[in-house]
Design a protein around this nucleic acid. Structure first.
Lengths: 337, 337
DNA sequence: TTTATTTACTTAACCGATTAAGTAACATAG
DNA sequence: CTATGTTACTTAATCGGTTAAGTAAATAAA
């Protein structure tokens, strides 16, 4: 069975393809009667328009790209959910690209976007990303950064209150009696990592606590390597409190404590930036900084679609900070909020 | 700056567009010298081919679709990982569609595939799915079902050993002393749900245990509703062992036990079909049936690409069962494997 | 030497939609 | 009664590649 095209509809109805196209697109140039005839035949023959023909001509694909470091992370999974909810509603398609925390791969992905394959991009950069290639992308088409943004690039950004969250986390640990607090960071480059580090340091300062020489541990993207790194760091620094700034690192802390036979929270209080739905069922339940992942995805997508709809929307100036929340559980001792 | 097209390259080099196209596609018809000149200019002008022009002409999009009920589930997240790994390697693009456990939405998604937007489809159906629309899809283009397959449709399928896994889970509970075992099922229609139920019943039979009248609880897709449902079911049936056949349901059990103040495993032993990386850190650590999610995704994608490469590959006859594994932890008492 | 084949191209049709520009028929305004 | 508009179409160009078919020149085979 041949694919049904606009031309076939035209022939059957003794009309031009232009008329069919306009009828299907509800053009006012077409009489109601003709429109109905076209719609009827289209339905009867199960006509489905070829998106590529349309994209080629219109130079618009009704497709957006989502570039993230990984999917197996509650934050990104939930963010995709938020993005997809908006995209589905707007009739857009979502291409997912995983950079696997590899800026090389990310570059390759960004390069592909110069092809016009997608109308817009939502991106959360890798831990290694520098601005290279991103300015180009932002110049070329609508882009919204979310969570892991690139500070140097002037573009729309949806973030959470990273510095404040880290400040709050640190204060929470201090309130629980911690004096030797460590921070596990995913990256030296990432602005959200740096902001979290700043909030951390500011909190120590405000509470007259010294910054340990090895207060901040920069981790890898590989769990086996991190395991060794953390084990050593824990033993050398004798932390009494730790802030894990990513979900994976939160779990790693539990793993290392198990191995070292450090009790949580008696020996080490732990707070993790995590969206794990099971945080409350962990042993002990994990005090978290929970990010509004779904909302951030939704906000990012909403912003993007606004830009896609009206091209005079000043997308690059948009900034939105959605607050995270600290949920105190049993891995920390402070009783405050 | 205008977009660089093949035509522009042709004009600059005083060649025809056909030559350019062939040179870029490494056709043997083009001399090495010309090929190099074309490649050099293409690189210089940063030429990026328009995928839609190419897709339109070649009737191939180098894009596959992944249709899943949700992303916020370790199994699906990991499966995407596996799929993406293969797709990236093969130079394909991945469109993600979420059916949100809604067969209506799924239908809409499937309908879109008739447009030729994607060259192949990887799908894990909703809990409500009937065969409608799926046969059509399978007839139209390469499709591989994974995990949640549709039994009635003759098509390539990647599954795990559902019946065996449930049998093993049940036996494990029995070995731990359970006599009143319940099974939480996600669906009455899903073949994987039914297979798990079968394995469960067979194990009871083989161990001379009666099947409780309310042994199987069919759950909703909504956690608040499930919470109530399970609470009631637990109280009414006084289970001493429970098998949660999905990740979400596993967590729900912990929630309900907390509310009912039932201790795990003393009052209720729990085993869950789950790929949560935090299973071992739960309180108590959760005995799981862990599915090879990444591998299943990879296997499904590999199968699909084999079919996309050679069109005489008998895709519809492919069946692969990848074994799951039972990982005994503290939510159950049996000490076996 | 003539014919066949190979090499390295070009020409032009084509994929299936969209859309600027054109037109015939009819209505309305001046 | 002519000018102007409006309605409901059609014609043909276009988006940017790919590819079947054609060709001229060089090379090999008969």
């Amino acid at each position: 069975m041949e694919n049904v095209t606009i031309r076939m509809l035209a022939e059957r109805l003794q009309l031009s393809t232009a008329t069919i196209s306009k009828a299907l697109n509800n053009s006012h140039e077409i009489s109601e009667e003709t429109r109905q005839r076209v719609l009827a035949l289209a339905a009867e023959l199960n006509y489905v328009p070829n998106p590529y023909a349309s994209s080629l001509r219109k130079k618009a694909s009704n497709t957006i790209a989502v570039v993230i470091p990984e999917v197996a992370d509650s934050f990104f999974a939930e963010a995709i959910n938020g993005i997809e909810a908006v995209a589905q509603e707007k009739g857009y398609h979502v291409l997912i690209y995983l950079s696997h925390e590899n800026s090389q791969k990310e570059q390759t992905i960004l390069k592909d976007f110069q092809s016009g394959r997608v109308d817009g991009v939502l991106i959360s950069v890798t831990t290694e990303t520098t601005a290279t290639g991103l300015e180009q992308l932002v110049r070329d088409k609508p882009v919204v950064f979310f969570d892991r943004v690139c500070e140097e690039v002037k573009a729309a950004k949806i973030t959470t209150d990273d510095a404040t969250a880290a400040y709050r986390a640190t204060t929470h640990l201090i309130a629980g009696g911690c004096r030797r607090i460590g921070l596990l960071s995913a990256s030296r480059q990432l602005s959200i990592s740096n902001k979290r580090a700043e909030g951390f340091q500011q909190a120590l300062l405000d509470h007259q606590l010294p910054l340990l020489p090895n207060a901040i541990t920069y981790c890898y993207n590989e769990s086996a390597a991190n395991y060794q790194l953390l084990k050593t760091a824990f033993l050398e620094n004798d932390y009494d409190g730790i802030i894990a700034t990513t979900e994976k690192l939160s779990t790693a802390v539990y793993e290392v404590c198990e191995a070292l036979q450090w009790r949580i929270p008696e020996d080490l209080q732990v707070i993790g930036f995590s969206n794990l739905s099971t945080a409350r069922f962990l042993n002990p339940s994990l005090t978290t900084i929970t990010q509004p992942a779904f909302e951030m995805g939704k906000a990012a997508a909403t912003l993007l679609f606004r830009a896609l709809k009206s091209n005079n929307f000043p997308l690059q100036q948009q900034q939105e900070v959605i607050p995270s929340s600290l949920i105190a559980r049993n891995s920390t001792l402070a009783k405050d909020k």
